[in-house]
Design a protein around this nucleic acid. Structure first.
Length: 641
RNA sequence: GGGCCCGUAGCUCAGCUAGGAGAGAGCGCCGGCCUUCUAAGCCGGUGGUCCGGGGUUCAAAUCCCCGCGGGCCCGCCA
């Protein structure tokens, strides 16, 4: 643990004392020292958990008193309740705060690793939508916290430009007179429009064909229903760009789309120069749009990887060859495949690769009948590249849970090919997808809520709020809006399926980034005001005169001291689990307590110089911790709102 | 049919990994507080069969089993 961890120091002190009568190891006792409900004291130990039955209560009390932080100890059933020496604990917390300053509470990894974080990696077919936004927010947080803890982190974006979808988009673009986005249209939004138009037209054509061929009435009804739905999408898309829609529809009328898509895909994979430059041009347009949005969102990408490069360089082919030579090849659905299910029967392997015991693993088809490659196989080559190029100890893929199976296949395939180190150090960071309230989202139909519009709307809301307080600043509104969106996306545990709600993103009260930013700005305001009043704000000076006993008979001050003191543990826990929501919960709690205290008693107008020094130090603690929390969450604190 | 995630107040969520003391926030609703360090704030009130049923345990929102409801996956898509 960190050297500046007041709460942990106390826990160790207590655990070491208790170890004299308990057989449980000190570090295990430490884990069982919990913060108690206020009416019972400050810390609680469940005696059975440290191997002591309640009869040992008296001895436990005596022993624990050997720790100088303990002022009182009492038993209640199986609980050993401890009241801390508030003065001493406050003193320690202040000392650590002043000693560690800005890095207070930040855990430093004793063995820093080289870690690649691949995130966002949205298909270059349409603007980033709300699902990709959750990914972007999580990835940012993960890269941040890993880096903050001292690891060497590289972020990467995988541009999926190989495959059916991009080929279909290309087919659509080929029908246009000009592929350039119209004026005032963001390039990725333009690409998204053409893609949706092409796809909807293609789907309609294919369904119409099916309708003719359908034999049974119920089958025809089913197809007709689907068709009706598509026609609604079609008319909406047509109203957005009538000329584009009509042109694509007209041109595709007499084309066998499947065949055309397959032809484009093949030419692209083979590296046909004309096809290469055409497809790259389209995809680059979309990526340019992504870059604008991601930069705005604060999601930094160090390396942009083109999937097609892996195909053209022969890296994918090499993987294909190795798979074909593996002892587990089989024929599956008429194609050559590797029987990863066979390998997955080995529970030891599953364990090492952290694959769910009950996840059924189907064979992995090595390549399509037409010779083109498949996503998961290409991803094998990509994973090796990520490890190799960054000399990485670990690669973390931030990918929605819906890709659990291919991610498991990827690990098994690596293992099979002898890349055991890579397989074991490849982490699928899984999160649940985001659903829209009410309607169903579909990028193929052009029905999406884009990150751009969410950010714009949040910014407008922030601007309106700023205006009411006579501070119309675009720059500030942008920061607050972006923070609000990010925070919203991080505030729900990644494992929980999330329903996107405009109402909640735009709620700038209590449980929100604006609330935290506001609270932080308040702490800054206090320091600003203190300088105006020519009060000493140097913490090294303040600590010399501070009254360490100022929280003795003041519940709110004491609560804040304890909260500030527990930040290092919260940070550590969040670092271990890579779950931002614990940090979020903590920050909100801290802000609540601070605001409550703030409204109750003046800080700078405190007449007792020593108590004033303590109050300023406590404010400093809250300020430091809030700033550190916000930064890790990817939100830059604002000094003045 | 099989697998994974989720189900806690009217709504959105913490708490569940390592079981323990009357279940916590926010929004909403009702009522107060701006001549004193920023009212995106503060104070008070309202509100819950922790999806249901079994089981393990001295003790279950938390662990196990069986159901129910919502989402996702089981493609020569990505």
């Amino acid at each position: 643990m960190n050297s500046c961890n007041p709460l942990n120091s106390v826990k160790i002190c207590i655990a070491e004392a208790l170890a004299q009568i308990s057989k449980v190891a000190v570090e295990d006792i430490v884990k069982n020292v919990e913060i108690s409900r206020e009416e019972f004291g400050d810390l609680t130990i469940l005696l059975p958990r440290v191997g002591l039955s309640p009869e040992y209560c008296r001895e436990a009390i005596e022993t624990v008193r050997n720790c100088r932080f303990v002022s009182e100890a009492r038993c209640a059933g199986i609980y050993l309740n401890i009241v801390l020496n508030k003065t001493l604990f406050t003193d320690t917390t202040f000392e650590f705060l002043v000693r560690c300053k800005d890095s207070y509470g930040i855990y430093k990894e004793p063995n820093p690793k080289r870690i690649v974080v691949e995130y966002v990696s949205a298909n270059p077919l349409h603007p980033l939508h709300i699902g990709a936004s959750r990914n972007a927010a999580l990835g940012q947080f993960i890269a941040n916290i890993l880096k903050t803890a001292g690891n060497i982190v590289q972020t990467r974006f995988y541009i999926n430009d190989v495959g059916r979808q991009v080929a279909l988009l290309t087919l659509g673009m080929m029908q246009l007179e000009s592929i350039e986005p119209p004026n005032n249209t963001k390039p990725d939004h333009w690409v998204g429009l053409v893609y949706a138009i092409t796809n909807v037209i293609a789907e309609i054509m294919s369904l119409k064909k099916k309708l003719v061929e359908a034999l049974r009435d119920e089958e025809r009804e089913e197809i007709q229903r689907e068709l009706d739905e598509l026609l609604v999408d079609a008319s909406r898309l047509r109203s957005q760009a009538p000329d584009v829609f009509d042109r694509v529809a007209e041109k595709l009328k007499n084309i066998d789309i499947e065949e055309e898509v397959s032809r484009i895909m093949k030419l692209y994979e083979l590296g046909n120069p004309d096809m290469k430059s055409f497809v790259r041009k389209i995809v680059t347009m979309c990526i340019e749009g992504f870059k604008q949005t991601l930069t705005r969102f604060g999601a930094l990408i160090d390396v942009w990887d083109w999937e097609s490069d892996l195909v053209w360089s022969g890296e994918v082919e090499e993987v294909v060859k190795k798979l074909e030579a593996s002892p587990l090849t089989m024929v599956y659905k008429g194609a050559l495949a590797v029987d990863l299910g066979q390998l997955a029967k080995d529970l030891n392997v599953r364990n090492r690769l952290a694959i769910d015991r009950d996840l059924e693993i189907p064979p992995l088809i090595i390549r399509r009948s037409d010779g083109t490659t498949l996503y998961t196989v290409r991803d094998i080559a990509y994973t090796l590249k990520k490890f190799r190029e960054f000399n990485a100890d670990k690669v973390i893929n931030i990918i929605a849970s819906e890709q659990k199976l291919p991610q498991a296949q990827l690990k098994l395939a690596l293992y099979l090919l002898g890349y055991t180190r890579e397989a074991e150090n490849l982490v699928h960071y899984s999160y649940e997808i985001v659903a829209m309230e009410g309607t169903k989202m579909s990028s193929r139909r052009g029905r999406i809520v884009t990150l751009d519009e969410i950010l714009d709307t949040a910014k407008q809301k922030a601007l309106a709020e700023l205006e009411t307080r006579g501070n119309r600043s675009e720059e500030l509104a942008e920061k607050i809006g972006v923070a609000a969106v990010k925070f919203y996306l991080l505030s729900i545990s990644p494992s929980r399926p999330m329903k996107f709600s405009w109402k909640l993103v735009l709620d700038f009260e209590k449980n929100s980034a604006p609330y935290l930013l506001y609270t932080y700005a308040r702490t800054e305001g206090i320091f600003r005001k203190a300088r105006e009043l020519e009060l000493n704000t140097e913490v090294q000076e303040l600590i010399k005169i501070a009254d360490r006993g100022f929280a003795e008979n003041n519940a709110k001050r004491w609560r804040l001291v304890k909260l500030v003191a527990s930040f290092p543990e919260v940070f550590y826990g969040s670092y271990q689990s890579l779950d931002p929501s614990t940090l979020v919960t903590y920050a909100l709690k801290l802000a609540d307590e601070f605001n409550s205290w703030y409204s109750e008693e003046p800080i700078l107008l405190e007449e007792n110089e020593k108590i004033r020094a303590s109050k300023i130090l406590l404010t400093y603690g809250v300020k430091t911790v809030l700033a550190n929390t916000l930064r890790v969450l990817g939100i830059e604190p604002i000094e003045k709102i």
